[in-house]
Computed example of a mutant assay.
Amino acid sequence: MEKLITALLVLAGIIHLLPVPGVLGAERLSALYGISLAEPNIDILMRHRAILFGILGLFLLYAAFQPSLQTLAMVAGLISVVSFIAIAWSVGGYNEFIQKVIFADMVATIALVAAAVIRAIDPTSS
């Protein structure tokens, strides 16, 4: 069960790392999200967002192999993905690129919830 938890956290970590190339500039961000970033302030905010996702993704990957950090990583990852899904659904009108992000976040949500359930029911997995 420990290996399954590790694999699920690695999956969530990889999903969180997918936006990291956006730090390289507006062109990458446009390719990721299908939006124009002509306004410099939005470019700055989105590039910073890419860095934050990188930090969280690396933490999830690290925690996958550090059982003492796994609960914290699961909580942080779930806050990230569930909040994005909730915001997207509440705003609506998003494009197909954002729909792909929502799908990836749903996959991460399932992985993180599964890891948390396994950890809760299998005391040897901690």
Score class of each variant (00 low, 15 high):
M1N: 10
M1V: 04
E2F: 08
K3Y: 08
K3V: 10
L4C: 08
A7P: 14
L9F: 07
V10T: 06
V10A: 07
V10Y: 10
L11F: 13
A12D: 10
A12F: 13
I15L: 15
I15A: 08
I15W: 03
H16S: 13
H16P: 01
L17F: 05
L18F: 14
P19G: 03
P19E: 03
V20G: 09
P21D: 02
P21A: 12
G22R: 06
L24R: 08
G25S: 04
G25V: 01
G25I: 09
A26K: 15
A26Q: 15
R28S: 06
L29F: 02
L29V: 01
S30M: 09
L32F: 00
Y33C: 02
S36F: 04
S36T: 11
A38N: 14
E39F: 02
E39P: 05
P40I: 00
N41Q: 13
I42L: 15
D43C: 03
M46P: 04
M46R: 02
R47V: 01
I51F: 08
F53P: 00
F53I: 07
F53A: 03
G54K: 04
G54A: 00
L56S: 04
G57F: 06
G57N: 01
F59T: 00
L60T: 03
L60E: 02
L60R: 08
L60I: 00
L61Q: 06
A64Q: 07
Q66N: 15
L69D: 15
L69C: 09
L69N: 04
L69W: 10
Q70D: 02
L72D: 00
A73P: 09
A76F: 09
G77F: 11
I79V: 15
I79Y: 15
S80I: 01
V81Y: 05
V81P: 09
S83Y: 05
F84N: 14
A86E: 07
I87D: 04
A88H: 05
S90L: 11
S90A: 14
V91D: 08
V91E: 14
G92N: 15
E96V: 09
E96H: 13
E96K: 12
Q99R: 15
K100V: 14
V101T: 13
I102D: 07
A104N: 14
D105G: 01
D105H: 14
M106P: 05
V107H: 11
V107D: 04
A108Y: 11
A108V: 03
A108C: 07
A108W: 09
A108G: 13
I110W: 06
A111L: 05
A111V: 08
V113S: 10
V113N: 02
V113Q: 02
V113K: 02
A114R: 05
A115C: 05
A116G: 15
A116W: 12
V117E: 08
V117S: 03
V117Q: 03
I118E: 06
I118C: 07
I118F: 10
R119I: 05
R119F: 01
I121N: 00
D122Q: 03
P123Y: 13
T124R: 04
T124G: 00
S126L: 12
